[in-house]
């Protein structure tokens, strides 16, 4: 059997070895207590400034359409945004356009609300799962009580204390869309014209949103767990984003290192074949 060169062996490395290297890298990075100060990008700063400009008692809609698949990215965003809203003593309602998103966001919001002295029904409410986003946004733009009818606890919308003085989305100050799905286009198209939009996509979805940032149709954006980390630094809190950021950035470094290594191996193999 012909002996393989080191470059050839490197090119045929078993994928399980790569998986173990990545897993070890992620575990080590999650355990590391190193915090590198971020360069907060303008979309995150604008997001923060928009929430910061809210007055106590203002109303915000949080559109939470994410499930466990994107938990690592959307949960840090969701938690950071809710904590900021509660710090500003802003009223908010949550709505989900995917069935699993309802339970996850309700349980999380309930926990964060308890920690921050928010009372469900009085300071915040969860509208539950609604099947069709376009119909829901158009309907809520006219009359929320007629469109949604009741919250997750079966209380009629009109009887919720948090909805006092609120008839439709026109009475809201802004909407925060936390999602890995393509729901942003629907909010932009069908919301009342004066309702401002803030966006929390996963990292892969963020690339598509720059066009809306550029046009001013969304005012700010938190990109994945990395964006949540930057937001947490602005808020001065330690959340999931802070815990995840090292795993993200050191995985990036590892991927780049292995891409370079693979290319170097390919060049050396070519050179060896040529000679």
């Amino acid at each position: 059997m012909e002996a393989r060169s080191i470059w050839e062996r490197m090119m045929r490395i078993d994928r399980r070895i790569l998986y173990v290297i990545l897993a070890v890298n992620i575990i080590a990075a999650l355990m590391a207590r190193v915090a590198i100060e971020p360069d907060v990008p303008p979309p995150v700063k604008r997001f923060y400034d928009t929430v910061e400009a809210l007055q106590p008692g203002d109303m915000v809609m949080v559109s939470s359409t994410w499930s466990a698949g994107t938990l690592a990215e959307n949960q840090p965003q969701f938690e950071a945004v809710l904590k900021h809203l509660m710090r500003k003593r802003v009223r908010f309602t949550i709505i989900s356009f995917a069935p699993p998103a309802r339970d996850i966001s309700h349980r999380l919001a309930r926990r964060i609300a308890e920690e921050n002295g928010y009372v469900e029904g009085k300071d915040w409410a969860h509208f539950g799962y609604t099947p069709d986003i376009i119909i829901a946004i158009k309907g809520m733009s006219e009359d929320i009580a007629q469109t949604i009818r009741q919250d997750v606890r079966r209380t009629p919308i009109a009887e919720l204390e948090v909805m006092r003085g609120i008839k439709s989305l026109k009475d809201y100050k802004l909407v925060v869309d936390v999602t890995p799905s393509d729901t942003l286009g629907n909010w932009i198209s069908y919301r009342p014209p004066d309702l401002k939009i803030l966006y929390c996509p996963t990292s892969v979805m963020a690339a598509e949103a720059y066009t809306f940032l550029d046009s001013g149709q969304i005012l700010g954006m938190i990109t994945g767990a990395k964006g949540a980390y930057e937001y947490e630094r602005l808020l001065g809190i330690v959340g999931l984003g802070t815990r995840f950021i090292n795993a993200i950035q050191f995985s990036h470094v590892l991927i780049i290192f292995f891409i370079l290594l693979g290319n170097f191996g390919m060049l050396m193999q070519r050179r060896a074949s040529a000679s």
């Binding site: 790569l18 990545l22 698949g69 994107t70």
Partner: peptide, 16 residues
């Protein structure tokens, strides 16, 4: 979450 996380490992292997 586990199913989605597996993508990172496939991407790493595929990128290499």
């Amino acid at each position: 979450a586990t199913m989605f996380s597996l993508i990172a490992f496939y991407i790493f292997s595929a990128a290499y």
